[in-house]
Amino acid sequence: MAVSISAVVLLGIIVFVLIRGGYVRLSNALACALFGFFLASTGAAPTIRDAIGAVTSWISSI
């Protein structure tokens, strides 16, 4: 759970910086966020969660 909260905070900061810098418009960021919420309710969510968990555990072991 701590990894997912950290990922949410990190990605939120990145999106904020991109919107603030003018690289991404607010409507595009909202579309991506909605896509993420809908993707989380599909059958692909456990696979994505496992892949992210594997990458973060690999990074922490370095």
Rank of each mutant, 00 (worst) to 15 (best):
26 L>P: 00
17 V>S: 05
52 I>D: 00
12 G>I: 02
17 V>A: 11
39 L>Q: 06
26 L>V: 09
49 R>C: 07
43 G>R: 08
39 L>A: 15
18 L>Q: 12
22 G>T: 12
27 S>Q: 09
45 A>N: 11
22 G>H: 14
61 S>L: 05
61 S>G: 11
59 I>W: 04
12 G>F: 10
10 L>G: 01
53 G>Q: 01
14 I>S: 02
48 I>G: 02
52 I>C: 03
40 A>N: 12
29 A>Y: 01
36 G>E: 14
40 A>W: 08
33 A>K: 01
14 I>C: 02
36 G>S: 12
6 S>N: 10
1 M>Y: 05
7 A>M: 14
42 T>Y: 04
38 F>H: 01
32 C>I: 15
44 A>Q: 11
29 A>Q: 00
55 V>M: 04
48 I>Y: 05
26 L>T: 05
44 A>C: 04
10 L>W: 08
34 L>M: 15
43 G>K: 10
57 S>E: 15
41 S>F: 14
24 V>Y: 01
24 V>F: 12
41 S>E: 13
15 V>Y: 01
35 F>I: 11
45 A>W: 06
9 V>R: 06
42 T>L: 07
39 L>E: 10
20 R>L: 08
58 W>N: 13
55 V>W: 01
6 S>I: 09
18 L>A: 15
31 A>E: 09
8 V>T: 05
2 A>K: 02
23 Y>R: 13
15 V>A: 14
10 L>D: 08
42 T>M: 10
60 S>R: 10
62 I>F: 06
39 L>D: 07
43 G>Y: 04
25 R>Q: 11
34 L>E: 03
48 I>M: 08
48 I>F: 08
58 W>A: 15
33 A>P: 00
31 A>F: 13
22 G>F: 12
62 I>M: 06
28 N>K: 04
58 W>D: 07
27 S>G: 03
26 L>D: 02
51 A>F: 13
62 I>G: 04
52 I>S: 09
59 I>M: 14
1 M>G: 07
9 V>Q: 02
7 A>L: 15
6 S>F: 06
33 A>D: 05
33 A>M: 08
37 F>A: 14
56 T>R: 00
5 I>Y: 09
14 I>L: 14
37 F>I: 15
1 M>V: 03
47 T>F: 12
54 A>D: 09
31 A>D: 03
60 S>C: 02
22 G>E: 15
52 I>Q: 02
62 I>C: 01
48 I>E: 07
39 L>H: 03
21 G>S: 15
9 V>M: 08
23 Y>A: 15
60 S>A: 12
22 G>Y: 15
19 I>C: 03
14 I>M: 13
18 L>K: 04
17 V>Q: 09
60 S>N: 10
27 S>H: 07
10 L>T: 07
2 A>N: 06
3 V>G: 00
41 S>Q: 13
31 A>N: 07
6 S>R: 07
31 A>L: 15
33 A>Y: 02
25 R>D: 05
11 L>R: 04
37 F>K: 08
60 S>K: 11
53 G>M: 00
13 I>Q: 03
19 I>E: 06
62 I>R: 09
29 A>M: 01
10 L>K: 10
58 W>Q: 12
13 I>N: 05
15 V>R: 02
3 V>W: 00
59 I>A: 13
62 I>Y: 05
39 L>C: 10
23 Y>L: 14
4 S>D: 04
44 A>S: 12
2 A>F: 05
62 I>W: 05
8 V>S: 05
57 S>A: 10
27 S>P: 00
39 L>P: 00
